[in-house]
Amino acid sequence: MNDMIRPEQIAQPPVTAPEPMLVIDHVTKRFETPDGPVVAVDNISLTVGRGEFVSIIGPSGCGKSTLFNLVGGLLSISDGTIRIDGEAINGPHKSIGMVFQEDATFPWRTVIDNVAFPLELQGMAKGERLERARHFVSLVGLHGFEKRYPAELSGGMRQRVSIARTLAAEPKLLLMDEPFAALDEQTRLLLGDKVLQIQQELNQTVLLITHNITEAVQLSDRVLIMTYRPGRTKRIALIELPRPRTSEMLSSDTFGRYVAEVWADLREEASRGMQDAERGSR
């Protein structure tokens, strides 16, 4: 944002190792509930470099959304720190854009006005922001629906509006919480390709929360597998597939091996989660 060079910057020696985009440093989140404290995220550490695409995968209820909200600055951290661009966050950081798991469109705004929302907050002129919003509406395949209200769209289309809205702000660090969960398989794959393409163009850093193994392997440089209750790091898998990636490589042998590898780790946690759910429902 601030391109001006201040005198003290000239005097400083050049920085050797660039500060990573996102540092999650021994972060713990406890919720105080009437039944005592619940540890949703337990001592998680993760460093995400500039331009990197990292996924966090784990069974339902393991603390993924909690971690997402912590990084987004919408929840207070119990222990540890989160740094973005070297700054310890307390509140939503300016470099971040968030796509939420829930339906988050504004029902009183049309598709185009929803997407233009962040630009409106920045004070961008009307003509310019509508033009830019139109571009991102087309990008998520909603061309022709600009004047529709969310109530007139399907759940998957509304989620695409949310994605377009966050992308329109061109965040340097894109955080997404199961953004494709409400979409059908084909749309999910195509939109995944789109997100990757934008990520490359803008050299964005992406942290994707998902419970879909294929999606995690297809898109990510690294996949963090979380344990079920409390949410800890089980393993970080390195996905060394060539880029640019497209949904076409889904059928390759290497791809299948990565999926199997992640599943092997996730399986144990998922079955623990399932047992827990069964116990709870009884």
Binding site: P92, I96, G97, F100
Partner: peptide, 16 residues
Amino acid sequence: PILIRVGESFRANRWQ
């Protein structure tokens, strides 16, 4: 509450 979180995540000020 999700709509309020969206506003916060885009760093809307109090008036906005």
